[in-house]
Design a protein around this nucleic acid. Structure first.
Lengths: 279, 279
DNA sequence: TATTTATTTGAAATTTAATTTCTTTTTTCT
DNA sequence: AGAAAAAAGAAATTAAATTTCAAATAAATA
């Protein structure tokens, strides 16, 4: 289903004068139109109801009610301000708010994350012989997920919190370092980035702050959204965690499709070995 | 704007018998309802149009057309097949599809997960002296997240893949065991559940299959959605992982708010100690 | 258990909204 | 300028939604 607003925007010059008035009103006030009937919209646009209906027929096979339904589908109210979780909220309200927040975070990450950065990062990993992943706290969870996903497609990743071990590992050539840090301020990560640079090892960083110290020390910065939750309530904001995991997933996907048949085979083997020996 | 499907789900038991038929039909086929008129829906649900309209009045101030519009707003093309990620998809398409899938998974989890189960589980954890968490593969990531979240609010959780260690741990009284298994078929988890039952230790299971062997051996089953992704492509489906993490987050939230002031304080201390000594 | 009362339900009537028809007005093209 | 075509609105029609009311069912009371 293509966007009706987009479609109006594209076709508007082909409409008649009165139809254009209606079309423009819809473009300017899509949210309001949803609650109007054809008569009201006609008055607002300064035309007759027949014109509204005629335009509606062009835009939707279901006539004017169909236009309202399509508008409703794409004009979701952004009530992000009202979705902050409060300790007094009952669980069912929390669920609703979280649902919205998570959706919003992924949506935003889709905007901030640059496709070409993801692809370049996947290429770096493809080229490397050894991949090291590092993250502390909630980011260690993401690092572990990163490790799991890539090991399953035959790309071994070393994930450890032992910075000394990583430092000694990345002095080798054909190595890549993946750093995960929500704030981009973790000192250990910064130190590792410096070591990497001293040995021409590419640094891929997953963070929400592209201007952070760590980001500046990285070759590729994969930026995810971070819809600042109630700080009092949740340090390890689950939305941020999900955004990071989402970035890892896209990176993994990008890598996977570079040599899809080969990697899919490895993936199948991984699954089969579990099925055969552990179930 | 609150979710109309969610609202139907919550209120359905308060509806009359005929209204319930209509409500159930809407829950089962929201996408189709959007293109129906009240009469058609009445026929499909086996009731009269008057009943459909009566129910619509409960659900929306704008009557039946209002219900359709609200459904349209939240039922953005529920074509799961259409959103299945394909290896040939370019990254920007993958992003769109994933955004939809993740949103859908969380939404569905909100429906399948029972609030009272979450609260009971939180109560079990509150009552326990020792909490053990176990999961393998992608579920180990979830177990790790579970551990992190609860340690931060002063509730130590032991998370290990060493089944023998857990088995020896849960022979102690005032212990609770949290098992995470997407399929609910992991044999190690089942064994641990049996051990727990032999020692009157409550078992909380996070799984997508409430009829799985593990679910049957558990005291509380927290069921999350699992929108079966392209099996060839992704074994450790990220949407399932996110659904599990989401369940953990709700459980954590539920626990947190049982003694909010006290737990918020502990949370603050956790954060301060990191700030002070590690940054 | 029988009887009354309240609730639920669907058929029919009514109202409201959408759509079509038809006439008038405006525009376009000789 | 005048004829033809297109656009627009008023009024008529049709379709959909809603309300009313009487019958049926369920719940409560004696």
């Amino acid at each position: 289903m293509k966007s009706i607003l987009f479609s109006i925007h594209n076709q508007i010059s082909s409409f008649s004068k009165s139809e254009q008035k209606v079309a423009q009103f819809i473009l300017d006030h899509p949210q309001e139109v949803i609650t109007m009937n054809a008569d009201t919209l006609a008055n607002k646009a300064g035309v007759s109801a027949a014109t509204v209906v005629r335009l509606a027929k062009i835009l939707s096979t279901e006539g004017f009610p169909g236009v309202k339904i399509q508008l409703s589908a794409e004009t979701k109210v952004d009530d992000s301000l009202y979705t902050e979780v409060d300790p007094k909220d009952p669980l069912n309200v929390v669920k609703q708010k979280m649902e919205f927040r998570i959706g919003h975070t992924i949506e935003q990450t889709n905007v901030t994350l640059k496709d070409k950065d993801v692809k370049r990062a996947a290429q770096f990993i493809e080229n490397a012989d050894d991949v090291y992943a590092y993250g502390l706290g909630a980011s260690s969870i993401v690092a572990a997920d990163f490790q799991q996903k890539f090991i399953r497609v035959g790309k071994p990743v070393i994930q450890t919190m032992d910075t000394h071990l990583i430092a000694t590992g990345i002095v080798q050539p054909k190595t890549v370092l993946v750093l995960i840090s929500n704030t981009g301020e973790t000192v250990e990560s910064q130190k590792l980035a410096e070591v990497a640079h001293g040995h021409a090892v590419p640094v891929i960083t997953i963070t929400h702050d592209k201007k952070s110290p760590l980001a500046k020390k990285s070759d590729i910065v994969l930026v995810h959204d971070d819809s600042e939750e109630n700080e009092k309530l949740r340090t390890a904001a689950t939305t941020s965690l999900m955004a990071q995991l989402y970035v890892v997933d896209l990176l993994y996907y990008s890598y996977l499709t570079m040599n899809f048949d080969e990697n899919a085979l490895k993936l199948r083997e991984s699954r089969d070995v579990i099925r055969k020996y552990f179930k």
